[in-house]
Design a protein around this nucleic acid. Structure first.
Lengths: 341, 341
DNA sequence: AGTTAGCACTCATAAGGTAAGAGTGCTAAC
DNA sequence: GTTAGCACTCTTACCTTATGAGTGCTAACT
């Protein structure tokens, strides 16, 4: 399974050249890239061996070689040096992300935009959602005689709101009753506990004169559910059309990305803080020709959400991976800092 | 400039067949569609005349005819009967749009989704923004010792919020001072009047002990600006790739749609309640192969925003136009109704 | 004058053939 | 283990040809 040094060099050179040009790499053009004093025939023998072992593929007999997903995998795990970000790249990321952004969702939108731009791929991220998120605040802002805007704020900084219609007039007494119930039963609780069963119980305790607030409680349940769930944010879907190797699949891929529940599960599925799935390593058919890179960001030291990238398998991993890692760390730091203020 | 009855019939038949098949229409296949007892030669003579007059185009000498933008224009203005929506279509629209939606933005997102789905084009809409919008409410919800969420609500039902950091602790006294200033100077005013100049004036009246609220006032200016401006909502961009005639332009077109200021101006530019721009009638080069259909929706009887459609020029106008009109009216009614409660 | 049959003509498209070029695999010699 | 040499494969581009759809024009017809 392991490769001797020469084969490693050849594999790395093929991948790097292929990533650059997009064309199958032939033995002659490899000679120039490699420092070894060998003939093309020897390279050919080695390349044939690498095909045999599954690290390379041959589009057709008389074509050069193209890395297989196994080849990319070996390269990423063993051969690739992760380039440090240079100042320009680092500054580009930092300048695009406002430091004083207090809303995780907007911050992630920004992060997605940067990532989609610098990679020319589709960026995808999920808003913070982890075990044990608490309800920090619930507010009701009357905006009409019977309608109110409900706002929920979680311990991870997630804000959700919804306009909701009460069963009757929102008199000061009704508002007070609402706040009493909320602060007694919900504030400080875990957001996952706000089940409809729990709300039934709460509703049962509401005295007859304040039954008008029941729709508001239902509204609270809605926004609590919305806040406890990770939202999926996408950016740069149309970038996928810029990659020749994806062109046939691009539409199907974009269709796939629209189903956010599935995507959300996919992003959360990896155990590691950083994960790459190359081509056929992906469980979904629609991603068979794509790479998926997922990194998790920490809030208060706890893995809370993900930032990911979807593109063709032909990616400059050595460049992209450090960028994603840096961006992910940065986002985590900014959100954490925003919460501590 | 006007066409005799026979030419009108021929033009209409060509357009309808072309819209259906996407293939240039030849004289023979037209014979079957037309009820006239004529020979193909006569049809050919007439078609040649219609080309001469600019209503049709010929991809190459030995091909059938394709409608020009002038042809579509004549068809829409004079020949096309607007199909009434049948029950299925009407129900499809109604069921996709929740009646009790209190937030215009979410309602429009829904509307866009329906429209993009039923037309297989890109839907675009703008949130309500018209002259004389008033500030109905401003709220500050403290979410940390020094940070607060600011919320603004306009007379058209637009809600905007932003998290903002104050210059110091948000003590009850500070909050009270903030509300005093706001209700004295902003509530009930026209939202366009909240200029930075006005805020300067207001800021000058703040007593020294409450200078900490100045950043909050800046935040209010931000959300006021955001609320006074029409947002552009897009849906179904990738649908453009499904139209063969757009394939070359699709990426460029999507890029064009990303610039929301320009798009917003474009949508607002039409004077009429309903407007169609076909192909070259569009002022932007990027829309040269596309049709843009824009309808305005009324809130409280006043034109307040737009719902539009972008697709190829080859559209089933007779079907689409009634759908858009119906959808637009429905959206206007629901928003208006939501405000009256 | 309007209509039509007939026919030569144009052009896109598909299919087949050929040549060039890149790259390979294999063999035999080093 | 390495390499020069060479036959072989396969893609690509280009040309030719045939087919067919559709036209424009002319001359005859009503």
């Amino acid at each position: 399974m392991d490769l001797n040094e020469r084969r490693q060099k050849i594999l790395a050179a093929i991948i790097e050249q292929y990533v650059k040009t997009g064309e199958p790499v032939g033995s002659k053009s490899l000679l120039e890239a490699l420092q070894l004093s060998l003939s093309s025939a020897t390279i050919r023998n080695e390349m044939a061996e690498l095909v045999e072992m599954g690290y390379l593929e041959q589009p057709h007999t008389s074509a050069g070689r193209v890395p297989s997903h196994k080849g990319y995998r070996y390269y990423i795990d063993n051969l690739m040096g992760e380039n440090e970000l240079n100042d320009v790249q680092r500054r580009r990321i930092e300048q695009s992300i406002p430091k004083n952004m207090h809303e995780p969702e907007r911050l992630l939108e920004q992060a997605n935009e940067v990532l989609a731009n610098i990679t020319n791929c589709t960026a995808v991220s999920t808003t913070p959602a982890c075990e044990g998120v608490l309800i920090r605040k619930i507010e009701m802002i009357p905006i009409g005689s019977r309608t109110a805007m409900l706002v929920i704020l979680t311990s991870t900084g997630i804000l959700k709101s919804e306009v909701c219609r009460a069963g009757g007039e929102l008199t000061p007494a009704v508002c007070e009753a609402f706040y009493n119930i909320i602060s007694r039963t919900l504030i400080g609780r875990r957001i996952d506990d706000v089940s409809s069963a729990m709300l039934q119980t709460i509703a049962a305790t509401v005295s007859d004169e304040f039954l008008t607030i029941l729709p508001l409680l239902a509204g609270v349940a809605d926004i609590a559910a919305a806040a406890s769930q990770a939202d999926v944010l996408l950016e740069g879907q149309s970038n996928l059309f810029n990659h020749r190797e994806l062109e046939e699949n691009a539409l199907e891929l974009i269709e796939f990305l629209k189903k956010s529940e599935r995507l959300s599960r996919l992003l959360a599925s990896g155990k590691a803080k950083f994960d790459i799935k190359i081509g056929e390593e992906n469980e979904y058919r629609q991603l068979k020709n794509s790479s998926l890179i997922v990194a998790k960001y920490n809030i208060k030291g706890k893995e809370s959400g993900t930032i990911g990238l979807i593109g063709p398998t032909r990616l400059n991993y050595a460049q992209l991976i450090p960028s994603i890692k840096y961006l992910t760390d940065l986002v985590g730091r900014i959100i954490t800092q925003g919460l501590e203020e």
